[in-house]
Each structure stands twice: as C-alpha cells, then as structure tokens.
Write a protein that binds this DNA or RNA. Structure first.
Length: 282
DNA sequence: AAGCGCCTCAACCGCTGGTAT
DNA sequence: CATACCAGCGGTTGAGGCGCT
C-alpha cells in the first residue's frame, strides 16, 4: 500500500512537470535563480527555483539559450570552416567541437551539421563520414567559404578592414586556441593518422586549408612528427590536377550536373564550375 | 487563400561515465 | 564492491515557419 502511495505521488510529480517550449516567465525565473545562486546542481535548482521542469531541461535551456555568452544568429564562414575541420578530426563530438567555438553550443553545431552538411551528403547519395565526401567538401565547399570570408573583408565591402583570408582564419583559430594553453582537450589528444592537431603544441595542420593559407602567418607549422597528416600544397595541387572526386561520383551514379544537385543553394554548380575555371582547377 | 511539403532548431530521450554513499 | 544519483553527451523528434503550387 505504501509503495502504491509512493507511486501515486511520483506520478503526480511527473504529471505536474512541464514540457515543450519555455515561456518568458519560466526564462525569467531561471535567469533570476541562476543570477542569485549560480548554475549547476540542476536537479536541486529545478526544485528550489519553483520551475516545474526537470533539472535536465533547465540545464539545456540555460546552456543553449539563456546564458549571456551564447551567440545567436548564423554561423560565420570562419566558424563553418572550424566545424568542418574539427569534425574531420573528432567526428560527432559536438560538445568538444563547441568548446573550440566560443559562444556556440553543441546543439547548434549538431543542427548545422545535420541540416547543412548532411543534406549535401544525402543529395550526393554518400555517407557524410565517407572519405570522398570529406574530399568533396575540401574541393568545393572550403573554397566557397574562403571566398565568402574574403568577400566579407574586401575593400568594397561595408567594412574598412583589409584583413586577408588567411589572417581571418588564423585569428579565428588563434582565438579558439587561447584557452587551450592550459586546458585544451586538443593538446591532450593522441595523434592519429588523420590527426590535424599536434599533441605537443597548439599548431594546426588542417586537412582542408591550403598550406599557403596555413603557413602565411607562421601558425600552421609541422612539428616534425611524421604521424601528423599534413595536407600540403602538393596535395592540393594533386587534388586540383585531377578530377578523381567528380569522376568517382559519376561512376557511382551521382550526376553532379543534375538539377537535384545543382539546385542545392550551397553548392550552386554554375558558380562552382565558374570558380573552378577561374582558379584553373583541372 | 488553402493545402502541402520541406526545413530549421529548440527541446526531449536514452545512454554513459563519474562520483558519492 | 554495489548501488544510486547526477551531469553531460549525442541522437531524435516535432512544432512552427516558409516557400511553392
């Protein structure tokens, strides 16, 4: 009987729990409580604050939305490049990737990957973790992002800065690397054949960025460890000098010029071919 | 104007690893 | 050790917005 009474009480508590979108009042209550008592200990916070939410729900709402340093709005091209790079290194370790992008949450990055990157993979009928897809990103997507970065910083743009692509990217990565000095998970990672980070320093060997970009500021420097994969200029040239990716996709039954693929906003094929010819690729 | 389908993103769910008892 | 509890993570879902017909 006692047990059934306890069950009833638990059911009552469960029934009282709110789910779904947060109201303004709930947000205010949570922010006020955390301002006074600090974050953490989410279950007791949920009970003490008077919110009819689980601790998990409170934590998620705070970390993903209410926390003052959470950035809202679209990811910048620099941030997208960072995500592509870090995902190539760590896979779906969203929280780990998010730690390198100040103000961005794991949820946001995960959503970005699923809605933007995986969509491209789906259209190409290829797994997003497939090596060929990574190669396709490197060949087509990265140059577009770099172009965007440059466009945003060109003298004709609204800003007066003359910062180059390489500097921009480097600043972004340097920015993210600052906290690593003492506690970076990157520095602790062991080196694998696909590693883009060195365990001995904070320098980055990017599988995406041309070495010319990486070395222009002296930041991306091979630390001499032969296990570190260096995607160097000759690799880039090699990729650019043949059409392996395109050919392979065609052989695999993916028509890159089909409407289905060409209609994708991110990879407008006309622009893509224009870009390729402009840059004497192939 | 209405219906439909697609896309985005906030939020939930289940699982795992760490810590306290 | 065994158990319970909790925080955090990654996968998934679904409401709402938007564009197209």
């Amino acid at each position: 009987m006692g047990a059934s009474k306890k069950m009833t009480n638990e059911k009552l508590v469960l029934d009282e729990l709110r789910k779904g979108p947060w109201t303004l009042d709930e947000d205010n209550l949570l922010v006020h409580y955390i301002t006074c008592h600090g974050e953490g200990r989410w279950n007791s916070l949920a009970k003490s604050s008077g919110l009819k939410r689980t601790g998990k729900s409170c934590r998620l709402r705070w970390l993903n939305y209410l926390k003052p340093d959470v950035k809202h709005g679209n990811l910048t091209p620099q941030e997208q490049i960072m995500i592509l790079e870090l995902h190539s290194k760590w896979g779906n370790r969203w929280s780990k990737i998010a730690q390198q992008l100040p103000g961005r949450t794991d949820n946001e990055i995960k959503n970005y990957w699923r809605t933007k990157v995986q969509k491209q993979a789906r259209h190409l009928k290829i797994d997003s973790n497939n090596k060929k897809f990574v190669e396709a990103l490197r060949q087509f997507w990265l140059p577009r992002l770099l172009e965007k970065v440059d466009k945003n910083n060109s003298p004709s743009s609204s800003t007066t800065t003359t910062t180059s692509t390489s500097t921009m990217i480097t600043n972004q990565i340097n920015l993210c690397s600052k906290p690593r000095v003492k506690e970076s998970p990157i520095m602790e990672t062991t080196i694998s054949s696909s590693s883009i980070y060195s365990s001995n320093d904070t320098r980055i060997m990017s599988p995406y960025l041309p070495e010319s970009v990486q070395q222009s500021n002296g930041y991306f420097v091979d630390n001499g460890n032969s296990d570190v994969t260096s995607f160097n200029q000759s690799n880039i040239q090699e990729l650019r000098s043949n059409d392996t990716t395109m050919l392979d996709f065609q052989l695999a039954g993916v028509d890159w010029m089909s409407n289905e693929v060409a209609d994708i906003s991110f990879w407008n094929m006309d622009e893509l071919w224009q870009f390729r010819s402009n840059n004497e690729i192939c």
